[in-house]
Nucleic acid binder design. Structure first.
Lengths: 157, 157
DNA sequence: GCAGGCTAAGTGCTCACGCAATCATCTTGG
DNA sequence: CCAAGATGATTGCGTGAGCACTTAGCCTGC
């Protein structure tokens, strides 16, 4: 009954593999970052995103855009930013032209911590990928992750 | 300053893309499953895994193995299984040879709900993948997901 | 066969997340 | 200018997740 489409089933397998791979990598990195720097993956990711956005001098991502970038709800983003702000890693500031909008800058301490944590992150990532590559289901995904040459970095509205 | 290894940076980009893709897909499926069947992605995933494991009769998974399969802690798995058991979708039973081990069966109701939810899941998955394919960063990953265990026609080189 | 160690599952606690409601601010129409 | 609506951020509340600990059952050495 309900003879499930083979095509759909294949998709589901692919999604399952993606999910598995993501979960494993995240768990691995989480442990490493947490143990060595007291950062969660989300926190690291947030710092990373925010540090990129303000490569000039003024960070120009609003909370909502940040939320989208890290795939978090607005409320979760608010709290995540608040946590890091309380730890002195970020600083909020009001958008001068629209006081509803709120920008965030990574502080010196935040940048420092981020740069300290980056090797940990990358090493853990490598390990996790290496581990995952042993699994036939995950190997193709691992390959792609390892070979994202695309320097393109634009997200369509 | 802190000239981050380009190789490592590339890896990080790939991971970032993977993470983004996963987050988007999960969020999309979550909404669909939750709205139409009152299931979370985890719950659906658990049902799916457990329904596969007992296709014969002997190959049942213990809690610990289940936890590994869905990348959850043991405690989270305990509670997840408990929730679904309380809803009558699963049934625990003791392993006869090792009474520490606990197996789980998907009940009729569980199978029924799973089969009902499967099209929802697959449709949402397709949508999410289609959406993601528009993003240059994510497209290669999407391709792999779509062609894991590639069915007969159109296998890429 | 019993003590000690080990492994599997479950429990207490805390915290992060999402949803819905709320507050603050901008924008538009009268 | 004011009212009504829209949008961004935050807060209240309930739920799911991980860590550390406990409990139950196996297994080895003596």
């Amino acid at each position: 009954m309900t003879a499930t489409d083979p095509a759909l089933t294949a998709l589901a397998q692919g999604w399952c593999a993606l999910s598995l791979l993501h979960g494993r990598i995240e768990a691995h990195i989480e442990r490493a970052l947490q143990a060595r720097h007291g950062l969660s993956v989300r926190e690291y990711s947030l710092l990373d995103v925010l540090s990129r956005q303000h490569d000039g001098d003024g960070g120009h991502l609003q909370m909502k855009q940040v939320a989208d970038a890290v795939v978090l709800s607005q409320s979760a983003t608010t709290r995540l930013v608040t946590r890091l702000e309380d730890r002195g890693l970020l600083a909020r500031y009001l958008c001068p032209t629209d006081r509803r909008g709120i920008y965030t800058n990574v502080t010196e301490a935040g940048l420092k911590l981020l740069e300290e944590a980056r090797p940990t992150n990358d090493t853990a990532l490598r390990q996790a990928l290496g581990e995952a590559a042993k699994n036939a289901e995950l190997a193709p995904l691992v390959r792609v992750v390892e070979s994202v040459n695309a320097p393109a970095h634009g997200s369509p509205a």
